[in-house]
Structure formats: C-alpha cells, structure tokens
C-alpha cells in the first residue's frame, strides 16, 4: 500500500434495525486488508454517524442498513457529513436497498451500493481504489 497513513473506515449502522452481522463481516474484511476500522454499534442517528466520522477523521464511511429507511436516513447523513466539512470522505453503503432506489442514493453522493451476496473482496477492492488520498 503506497499511502502515508492507514485507511481509516467508519462502519455505521443508521436507524432502528438490529442486525449487524453483515456490517461486522465487512468491518472484519477491511481490517484484514490492513485498514483501521471503527465500528459505531447499532441504532445510530445521522448526527452520531456524522460526528463520529468527524472525530475519528475517517477517509471512508460504510453505511449498513436493512430496515428500508435509507431514503429517510441517507439524505440526512449526507447533508450532515457535508455540513461538518467532511467533503473529502468517500461514502459507500450496503444492505437491503432496492435497485430502483440506487440512482437516487448515488445522487446524494454515495459512491457505491453493495447488495446481498457481494463478495467481501469486491468491497475491499472498491475501498482501496476509492479511498481519498490525503494531502
């Protein structure tokens, strides 16, 4: 890895769903790929996620959602992330997000959305290739 520092990733679980197996597997895969992964735990508000990303100065945020509330929560998260000045952070998402919602989510500034069955290597590769290089 030709970077000056480690890639720092926040894996966050917005909203009220209570299953985080997927989030933990992604977190573990990124860790095993040499990244520093911060996990928020369950049931986070958009405020908590944006503020945690700020304090931890992460390069990447991964949002995991299964509850179907992405259309309510993701816009708010992206708004707060930008408001806090985290303009160079790359955001990706995963979980249960219907195909027809994906364009709308991408329009918010979410770089990629990974559905069920995505191999972890695909996610790791994507994060490696798209994590912003810090100056």
């Amino acid at each position: 890895m030709e970077r000056k520092g480690k890639i720092r990733v926040l894996i966050a679980k917005p909203g009220l769903d209570s299953h985080d197996r997927g989030a933990k597997i992604v977190a573990r895969s990124l860790r095993d790929a040499g990244m520093e992964v911060i996990y928020t735990g369950l049931r986070q508000t958009p405020e908590q996620i944006a503020e945690t990303a700020l304090q931890e100065d992460v390069d990447v945020i991964g949002l995991s959602i299964l509850s179907g509330a992405h259309k309510a929560l993701f816009p708010r998260i992206m708004e707060l992330v930008k408001k806090k000045g985290l303009t160079d952070v790359m955001v990706f998402a995963g979980g249960i997000i219907p195909k027809e919602d994906i364009p709308e989510m991408k329009k918010l500034g979410i770089s990629q959305i990974f559905g069920p069955g995505t191999p972890t290597e695909t996610i790791v590769r994507f994060v490696f290739d798209n994590a912003p290089e810090r100056t």
Binding site: R31, E36, V37
Partner: peptide, 18 residues
C-alpha cells in the same frame, strides 16, 4: 499480521458522541 485494526471501544460511548 495484517496491520489492520478493529477499533470498537467507542461503541460503548456512542451516546456521548454528539
């Protein structure tokens, strides 16, 4: 072995993050 880390301490403190 991998140079990676899982940082989970703040899970217990998340209510104070804001």
């Amino acid at each position: 072995f991998t140079g990676g880390a899982f940082l989970g301490d703040r899970i217990r403190m998340q209510d104070l993050s804001t």
